[in-house]
């Protein structure tokens, strides 16, 4: 495995995959991300992030069911792996440490 860091966008995608539980497929992740962050996410950007996450071993994927809107094409469902969970926890820890150090300054009234 080349690198195990989690980029900012990757982290968001990963968290969304977890949040959506067993409904985490392309369009659902895209829409959830878009409503939450308010920025547009293209299918291309999303899949390149998912692709990277899968390569790093943070997520696994399996075929899901097909629906009529999809013209009979199956979904690809994504699920977090244990190393993905580890990476999320590590990212959170780093963040919390930094928060503890700096929150006095950030939250201090000007």
């Amino acid at each position: 495995m080349k690198s195990t860091n989690l980029g900012e966008f990757e982290e968001l995608v990963l968290l969304t995959v977890v949040a959506l539980y067993d409904e985490a497929y392309g369009v659902a992740v895209k829409e959830d991300l878009e409503t939450r962050t308010g920025r547009e996410v293209s299918v291309g950007a999303l899949y390149s992030a998912l692709n990277r996450l899968e390569k790093k071993g943070f997520i696994t994927s399996k075929w899901g069911e097909s629906t009529r809107e999809r013209g009979g094409k199956r979904k690809r469902l994504f699920n977090i792996s244990s190393s993905g969970k580890k990476a999320l926890i590590q990212a959170r820890n780093v963040r919390e440490e930094l928060w503890d150090l700096s929150k006095g300054l950030i939250l201090k009234p000007e």
Binding site: G26, K30, V43, W63, E69, R70, K73, R74, K75
Partner: peptide
């Protein structure tokens, strides 16, 4: 190997 599900996503988005 990506074709089917991305195509499906695209179509779903198109309909929406």
């Amino acid at each position: 190997d990506y074709y089917e599900f991305i195509h499906g996503d695209l179509e779903e988005l198109f309909l929406a």
